[in-house]
Amino acid sequence: MQLFPCPFCGPRDETEFHYGGDAGNVRPDGAEVPIDRWAGYLYLRGNPKGTAREIWVHMSCGEFFVMERDTVTHKVLSSSALGGEHAP
């Protein structure tokens, strides 16, 4: 059982969390996006062995956040709320 630090709620059991994907996988808008770019956004993943920067959601509070962790040792390196560009 891993413990993940929700930036809003503190450390909680892994079962309360859901993996959301790679952090920084920016969505390309438009019907004319080159198909390779779109397929890349949809499907291609870094899937790093080692340090990974990922989006997670804490299902208990509903907040998405960024977590850095090691995919081999499962050590959690950091967690932070999503960037402030949309924040009120």
Partner: peptide, 16 residues
Amino acid sequence: HARLEEWRQDRFGRGA
């Protein structure tokens, strides 16, 4: 619900 929340937080922002 999860999907709406994801797009809200990821694309529109908490204040929107």
